[in-house]
Design a binder for these strands. Structure first.
Lengths: 125, 125
DNA sequence: ATAGATGTACTATCCGATATAGTACACCCC
DNA sequence: GGGGTGTACTATATCGGATAGTACATCTAT
Protein backbone atom coordinates (compact mmCIF):
# COMPACT_ATOMS: atom_id res chain seq x y z
CA UNK A 1 0.00 0.00 0.00
CA UNK A 2 2.90 2.32 0.68
CA UNK A 3 5.86 2.62 -1.62
CA UNK A 4 9.12 3.47 0.08
CA UNK A 5 12.44 3.71 -1.71
CA UNK A 6 15.26 3.03 0.73
CA UNK A 7 17.86 4.10 -1.81
CA UNK A 8 16.40 7.51 -2.57
CA UNK A 9 18.14 10.71 -1.58
CA UNK A 10 14.82 11.80 -0.11
CA UNK A 11 14.55 10.83 3.56
CA UNK A 12 12.20 7.95 4.34
CA UNK A 13 10.11 10.05 6.71
CA UNK A 14 9.54 12.54 3.91
CA UNK A 15 8.50 9.77 1.56
CA UNK A 16 5.99 8.55 4.11
CA UNK A 17 4.76 12.09 4.54
CA UNK A 18 4.25 12.48 0.80
CA UNK A 19 2.72 9.03 0.55
CA UNK A 20 -0.03 9.80 3.03
CA UNK A 21 -0.85 13.04 1.27
CA UNK A 22 -0.99 11.26 -2.04
CA UNK A 23 -3.45 8.70 -0.73
CA UNK A 24 -5.65 11.44 0.66
CA UNK A 25 -5.66 13.33 -2.62
CA UNK A 26 -6.46 10.16 -4.52
CA UNK A 27 -9.36 9.49 -2.19
CA UNK A 28 -7.96 6.25 -0.82
CA UNK A 29 -7.84 7.84 2.58
CA UNK A 30 -10.76 10.01 3.68
CA UNK A 31 -11.50 12.19 6.66
CA UNK A 32 -11.34 10.39 10.00
CA UNK A 33 -9.95 7.25 8.40
CA UNK A 34 -7.51 5.56 10.72
CA UNK A 35 -3.90 5.24 9.70
CA UNK A 36 -1.90 2.12 10.46
CA UNK A 37 -0.21 2.34 13.80
CA UNK A 38 3.36 3.53 13.97
CA UNK A 39 4.53 0.03 14.77
CA UNK A 40 2.37 -1.68 12.13
CA UNK A 41 3.48 0.74 9.43
CA UNK A 42 7.10 0.30 10.40
CA UNK A 43 6.85 -3.47 10.29
CA UNK A 44 5.06 -3.37 6.94
CA UNK A 45 7.53 -0.97 5.36
CA UNK A 46 10.54 -2.60 6.95
CA UNK A 47 11.72 0.56 8.65
CA UNK A 48 12.16 1.69 12.21
CA UNK A 49 9.07 2.77 14.17
CA UNK A 50 10.81 6.02 15.06
CA UNK A 51 11.05 6.90 11.40
CA UNK A 52 7.32 6.47 10.95
CA UNK A 53 6.68 8.39 14.15
CA UNK A 54 8.71 11.26 12.77
CA UNK A 55 6.55 11.31 9.64
CA UNK A 56 3.34 11.19 11.68
CA UNK A 57 4.50 14.03 13.89
CA UNK A 58 5.24 16.13 10.84
CA UNK A 59 1.84 15.27 9.37
CA UNK A 60 0.17 16.34 12.59
CA UNK A 61 2.23 19.50 12.82
CA UNK A 62 0.98 20.58 9.40
CA UNK A 63 -2.61 19.71 10.28
CA UNK A 64 -2.97 16.83 7.83
CA UNK A 65 -3.66 14.18 10.44
CA UNK A 66 -4.54 14.21 14.11
CA UNK A 67 -3.36 11.77 16.73
CA UNK A 68 -5.24 10.62 19.79
CA UNK A 69 -3.04 9.18 22.53
CA UNK A 70 -3.93 5.57 23.05
CA UNK A 71 -6.29 5.52 20.07
CA UNK A 72 -4.29 6.05 16.92
CA UNK A 73 -3.78 8.53 14.11
CA UNK A 74 -6.54 9.72 11.79
CA UNK A 75 -6.98 11.81 8.69
CA UNK A 76 -7.94 15.38 9.51
CA UNK A 77 -10.34 17.48 7.50
CA UNK A 78 -8.63 17.73 4.12
CA UNK A 79 -7.47 21.18 3.11
CA UNK A 80 -6.26 21.09 -0.46
CA UNK A 81 -4.10 24.19 -0.06
CA UNK A 82 -1.95 22.36 2.46
CA UNK A 83 -1.18 19.69 -0.10
CA UNK A 84 -0.71 21.91 -3.08
CA UNK A 85 1.63 24.60 -1.80
CA UNK A 86 4.67 22.39 -1.59
CA UNK A 87 4.34 20.82 -5.02
CA UNK A 88 3.55 24.15 -6.62
CA UNK A 89 6.77 25.57 -5.23
CA UNK A 90 8.61 22.58 -6.65
CA UNK A 91 6.97 23.17 -9.98
CA UNK A 92 7.97 26.83 -10.01
CA UNK A 93 11.55 25.96 -9.18
CA UNK A 94 11.71 23.37 -11.92
CA UNK A 95 10.17 25.74 -14.44
CA UNK A 96 12.62 28.49 -13.54
CA UNK A 97 15.51 26.09 -13.94
CA UNK A 98 14.22 25.26 -17.39
CA UNK A 99 13.91 28.94 -18.24
CA UNK A 100 17.47 29.50 -17.06
CA UNK A 101 18.63 26.87 -19.50
CA UNK A 102 16.88 28.52 -22.40
CA UNK A 103 14.10 26.02 -22.78
CA UNK A 104 11.15 27.43 -24.69
CA UNK A 105 7.92 27.97 -22.82
CA UNK A 106 6.12 26.12 -25.54
CA UNK A 107 8.24 23.05 -24.92
CA UNK A 108 7.18 23.03 -21.28
CA UNK A 109 3.56 23.52 -22.31
CA UNK A 110 3.83 20.43 -24.49
CA UNK A 111 5.27 18.47 -21.60
CA UNK A 112 2.31 19.55 -19.51
CA UNK A 113 -0.06 18.30 -22.20
CA UNK A 114 1.61 14.92 -22.33
CA UNK A 115 1.65 14.51 -18.58
CA UNK A 116 -1.97 15.47 -18.09
CA UNK A 117 -3.20 13.24 -20.89
CA UNK A 118 -1.13 10.27 -19.80
CA UNK A 119 -2.37 10.60 -16.26
CA UNK A 120 -5.93 10.63 -17.49
CA UNK A 121 -6.68 13.56 -15.26
CA UNK A 122 -6.93 17.30 -15.56
CA UNK A 123 -9.22 17.03 -18.51
CA UNK A 124 -11.33 19.75 -17.03
CA UNK A 125 -10.32 22.30 -19.63
CA UNK B 1 30.59 35.22 -9.68
CA UNK B 2 29.56 31.90 -8.25
CA UNK B 3 26.79 31.51 -5.73
CA UNK B 4 27.20 28.60 -3.35
CA UNK B 5 24.83 27.84 -0.51
CA UNK B 6 26.63 25.93 2.20
CA UNK B 7 23.36 25.25 4.02
CA UNK B 8 21.50 23.70 1.11
CA UNK B 9 20.55 20.05 1.02
CA UNK B 10 22.12 19.93 -2.43
CA UNK B 11 25.81 18.98 -2.27
CA UNK B 12 28.27 21.78 -2.98
CA UNK B 13 29.84 19.94 -5.89
CA UNK B 14 26.41 19.69 -7.51
CA UNK B 15 25.81 23.37 -6.99
CA UNK B 16 29.11 24.15 -8.69
CA UNK B 17 28.16 21.81 -11.50
CA UNK B 18 24.83 23.58 -12.00
CA UNK B 19 26.49 26.96 -11.65
CA UNK B 20 28.87 26.36 -14.53
CA UNK B 21 26.07 25.16 -16.76
CA UNK B 22 24.02 28.20 -15.89
CA UNK B 23 26.83 30.54 -16.86
CA UNK B 24 27.26 28.72 -20.15
CA UNK B 25 23.56 28.95 -20.96
CA UNK B 26 23.51 32.63 -20.07
CA UNK B 27 26.47 33.23 -22.37
CA UNK B 28 28.79 34.38 -19.63
CA UNK B 29 31.01 31.43 -20.43
CA UNK B 30 31.60 30.54 -24.07
CA UNK B 31 33.35 27.73 -25.90
CA UNK B 32 37.01 27.37 -25.00
CA UNK B 33 36.76 29.90 -22.22
CA UNK B 34 39.01 28.95 -19.36
CA UNK B 35 37.52 28.16 -15.99
CA UNK B 36 39.15 29.28 -12.78
CA UNK B 37 41.62 26.73 -11.52
CA UNK B 38 40.47 24.23 -8.96
CA UNK B 39 42.49 25.96 -6.30
CA UNK B 40 41.41 29.46 -7.28
CA UNK B 41 37.76 28.51 -7.37
CA UNK B 42 38.03 26.82 -4.02
CA UNK B 43 39.68 29.83 -2.42
CA UNK B 44 37.10 32.17 -3.94
CA UNK B 45 34.13 30.09 -2.86
CA UNK B 46 35.58 29.25 0.51
CA UNK B 47 35.42 25.50 -0.02
CA UNK B 48 37.90 22.68 -0.28
CA UNK B 49 39.78 22.26 -3.58
CA UNK B 50 38.75 18.61 -3.67
CA UNK B 51 35.10 19.62 -3.74
CA UNK B 52 35.71 21.80 -6.80
CA UNK B 53 37.76 19.05 -8.39
CA UNK B 54 34.85 16.67 -7.96
CA UNK B 55 32.55 19.11 -9.75
CA UNK B 56 35.04 19.59 -12.58
CA UNK B 57 35.44 15.85 -13.01
CA UNK B 58 31.69 15.45 -13.27
CA UNK B 59 31.52 18.30 -15.78
CA UNK B 60 34.18 16.64 -17.87
CA UNK B 61 32.53 13.24 -17.61
CA UNK B 62 29.34 14.66 -19.07
CA UNK B 63 31.22 16.44 -21.83
CA UNK B 64 30.46 19.97 -20.67
CA UNK B 65 34.06 20.97 -20.10
CA UNK B 66 37.42 19.52 -21.05
CA UNK B 67 40.54 19.53 -18.96
CA UNK B 68 44.08 19.71 -20.23
CA UNK B 69 46.66 18.40 -17.79
CA UNK B 70 48.95 21.19 -16.75
CA UNK B 71 46.92 23.81 -18.60
CA UNK B 72 43.50 24.10 -17.01
CA UNK B 73 39.84 23.42 -17.65
CA UNK B 74 37.87 24.88 -20.53
CA UNK B 75 34.33 25.04 -21.81
CA UNK B 76 33.62 22.37 -24.41
CA UNK B 77 31.45 22.86 -27.46
CA UNK B 78 28.05 23.61 -25.96
CA UNK B 79 25.40 20.99 -26.57
CA UNK B 80 22.11 22.32 -25.28
CA UNK B 81 20.59 18.86 -24.94
CA UNK B 82 23.15 18.03 -22.28
CA UNK B 83 21.95 20.94 -20.20
CA UNK B 84 18.27 20.53 -20.81
CA UNK B 85 17.65 16.85 -20.17
CA UNK B 86 18.16 17.03 -16.43
CA UNK B 87 15.97 20.06 -15.83
CA UNK B 88 13.25 18.74 -18.13
CA UNK B 89 13.10 15.55 -16.10
CA UNK B 90 12.81 17.65 -12.97
CA UNK B 91 10.03 19.62 -14.58
CA UNK B 92 8.14 16.48 -15.53
CA UNK B 93 8.44 15.10 -12.03
CA UNK B 94 7.21 18.33 -10.50
CA UNK B 95 4.31 18.51 -12.94
CA UNK B 96 3.31 14.92 -12.23
CA UNK B 97 3.40 15.59 -8.51
CA UNK B 98 1.05 18.52 -9.09
CA UNK B 99 -1.26 16.36 -11.17
CA UNK B 100 -1.29 13.76 -8.41
CA UNK B 101 -2.48 16.41 -5.99
CA UNK B 102 -5.34 17.40 -8.23
CA UNK B 103 -3.92 20.71 -9.38
CA UNK B 104 -5.53 21.93 -12.56
CA UNK B 105 -3.44 22.03 -15.70
CA UNK B 106 -4.56 25.58 -16.25
CA UNK B 107 -3.11 26.60 -12.90
CA UNK B 108 0.28 25.27 -13.94
CA UNK B 109 -0.02 27.04 -17.27
CA UNK B 110 -0.57 30.30 -15.43
CA UNK B 111 2.48 29.65 -13.29
CA UNK B 112 4.46 29.14 -16.48
CA UNK B 113 3.22 32.46 -17.80
CA UNK B 114 4.25 34.28 -14.66
CA UNK B 115 7.67 32.72 -14.56
CA UNK B 116 8.47 33.36 -18.19
CA UNK B 117 7.33 36.96 -18.06
CA UNK B 118 9.16 37.70 -14.83
CA UNK B 119 12.32 36.22 -16.19
CA UNK B 120 11.99 38.40 -19.27
CA UNK B 121 12.87 35.45 -21.41
CA UNK B 122 11.04 32.91 -23.49
CA UNK B 123 9.18 35.61 -25.33
CA UNK B 124 9.85 33.84 -28.55
CA UNK B 125 6.24 32.78 -29.00
C1' DA C 1 -8.72 -4.12 37.40
C1' DT C 2 -5.88 -6.12 33.97
C1' DA C 3 -3.73 -6.59 29.50
C1' DG C 4 -2.67 -4.84 25.23
C1' DA C 5 -2.42 -1.34 21.85
C1' DT C 6 -1.69 3.33 20.93
C1' DG C 7 1.17 7.95 20.32
C1' DT C 8 5.00 10.25 22.23
C1' DA C 9 9.57 11.22 24.26
C1' DC C 10 14.21 10.39 25.10
C1' DT C 11 19.02 8.69 24.74
C1' DA C 12 22.48 6.24 22.41
C1' DT C 13 24.50 4.32 18.47
C1' DC C 14 25.43 3.35 13.60
C1' DC C 15 25.92 4.45 8.83
C1' DG C 16 26.56 6.87 4.62
C1' DA C 17 27.32 10.93 1.98
C1' DT C 18 29.63 15.00 2.05
C1' DA C 19 33.29 17.88 3.02
C1' DT C 20 37.75 18.68 4.50
C1' DA C 21 42.91 18.16 5.12
C1' DG C 22 47.13 16.87 3.41
C1' DT C 23 50.18 14.85 0.26
C1' DA C 24 51.78 13.29 -4.09
C1' DC C 25 52.28 12.86 -9.06
C1' DA C 26 52.46 14.09 -14.02
C1' DC C 27 51.93 17.59 -17.11
C1' DC C 28 52.47 22.15 -19.32
C1' DC C 29 54.18 26.92 -19.95
C1' DC C 30 57.36 30.59 -19.04
C1' DG D 1 63.96 24.99 -12.94
C1' DG D 2 59.87 27.08 -10.96
C1' DG D 3 55.20 27.65 -10.71
C1' DG D 4 50.83 26.63 -12.13
C1' DT D 5 47.64 23.05 -13.68
C1' DG D 6 44.41 18.66 -13.23
C1' DT D 7 44.27 14.36 -10.97
C1' DA D 8 44.70 10.66 -7.49
C1' DC D 9 44.86 8.90 -3.05
C1' DT D 10 44.31 8.30 2.03
C1' DA D 11 42.62 9.88 6.25
C1' DT D 12 39.65 12.47 9.17
C1' DA D 13 35.57 15.27 10.48
C1' DT D 14 30.94 16.32 10.22
C1' DC D 15 26.09 16.00 9.71
C1' DG D 16 21.59 14.04 8.61
C1' DG D 17 19.19 10.11 8.66
C1' DA D 18 18.12 5.72 10.42
C1' DT D 19 18.17 2.46 13.92
C1' DA D 20 17.84 0.29 18.65
C1' DG D 21 16.01 0.27 23.01
C1' DT D 22 13.47 1.96 26.72
C1' DA D 23 9.96 4.45 29.05
C1' DC D 24 5.57 6.75 29.89
C1' DA D 25 0.62 8.16 29.67
C1' DT D 26 -3.58 7.17 27.49
C1' DC D 27 -7.24 4.61 25.58
C1' DT D 28 -9.83 0.14 24.52
C1' DA D 29 -11.28 -4.37 25.40
C1' DT D 30 -11.63 -8.15 28.35
Amino acid sequence: MFSIDLTSRIPIYEQIYENIISLIVKGTLAENDQLPSVRAFAKDAGVNPNTVAKAYQELERTGIIYSVPGRGSFIAKPDSSVFQNAVLTEFDNAAMACADRGIDKQVLAEHLDNIYTKHGKGEKL
